[in-house]
Design a protein around this nucleic acid. Sequence first.
RNA 1: GCCGGGUUGGGGUAGGGGUUAUCCUUGGGGACUGUGGAUCCCCGGACCCGGGUUCAAUUCCCGGACCCGGCCCCA
Length: 429
Amino acid sequence: MIEKVRGFRDSFPEDMVPRQRMFDIMRQTANKFCFSPIDIPSLEYLELYKIKSGDELLTQTFSFKDKGGRELTLIPEATPSVVRMLTARKDIRKPVRWFCLPKLWRYEEPQSGRSREHTQFNADIFGDESLYADAEIISLACATLDKLGLCGTYKVRVNNRFLMEKILERAGIKQISKGYSLIDHFKKISKEEFEKELMDLSDDKEMLLALTELLGTEIKLSELDKKFPETFKSGNEEIIFRLMNTAKLVSKQTDAELVYDASVVRGLGYYTGIVFEGFDIKGEFRSIFGGGRYDNLCQLLSGTSMEAVGFGMGDAVLELLLRRNNNWDAEVKNNSVVFCALSKEAIDMCFSLVKTVREYGYSTTVDTSMASISNQLKKAGANGMGFAAILGPKELEDKKITIRNMKTGKQAVGSFQDLIQMMLELSEN
RNA sequence: GCCGGGUUGGGGUAGGGGUUAUCCUUGGGGACUGUGGAUCCCCGGACCCGGGUUCAAUUCCCGGACCCGGCCCCA
């Protein structure tokens, strides 16, 4: 027996059914927001990731040399490929709204909500620098979660990289990237530890105190202009208003709570405006989705300048969340029928009926086991079938068929032609 | 890459230096001779791998693999 590869997961029907339902909702929601589907390759040149990322990322890729000595890698993220595809075409009208559901791979230690292979719902808007694009991206992420039945269980924490830069400068912090790195750890390390490390970055104790205070506070975006500390406000009014207006637009699409949270900086260096993360309100899991504006990345990767804003939503954390909300079941399909054949002749007859039944939108199969009727019905019930169509010597003689609603137990007998009609009638009650 | 805890049939478990390895469940078959998850009967199925200690290891020791969780990182 050969074991499966570390960090990879087998997915059996009981998981794939709810997972497909989740992916279907992602696709449907993206379609409703007029995002077009694309697909990206699973392999790219490692080079594609060297440009924007440090060595850290490269050690966490599944990469190898192909037979021609080229360095390839299973893709660790979607954005570079999407950008490569977009900039390869000069004829695409802006703005561009694209989404995809690629599998991504990361060579790191598996832990809760994170395996070495996962699927990510990825959506971007290119060529639109406006706050409307920011709002649409966040709205799509929220609308998807709402549609999954998660409304009220999550909130979105928002920040803006420009605003943070100004704040760090005002706090006297010169090493901006070190500042971000420390802020990223704000929620993970103790307050004492944090303050100690913060003091190393600047001498302005008063400002650092104000910064620590701000980092520990969540402000509703609708009240940002009133509640934002005066110390950091002047000169940043424009960014604050943009954040507020973005939130106002998002609130037309979702009831999800949007809060300003200075500790959200995202690990990435390449974000250039708004950054955001979706969080489970109970705080049990890692972030549900994350994203932001990255207006400079296209230029870096391809030499073509292009504004962009997008998000990624992994399936692993989402699955944990849906499981916790008891929304991860393989539900009974009312439009499924099993033909219970009780004789050889009946089996033949069943097979000449299934095509029509399928054309009417039902999922159907024939039970050819020739087991007793009670065993066949037992099996049908266990398999969650909506109907059982029973065909035995009795029915064959009369050229009729018995149809049973497996949920209600109600039955009807009629001609083969009436089968669909009988199922419709049995569905109604 | 690092740290902690695990690993007994498909799932959940009991046990334990020498036994036919326990029980539940799932799966397969059958009875109830054409109407459902009941009951009864039968069957299949496991000690993660390698090395060491020992007369003897599934059990003890060491290493590895994998699983769970955490660090790093989060694209």
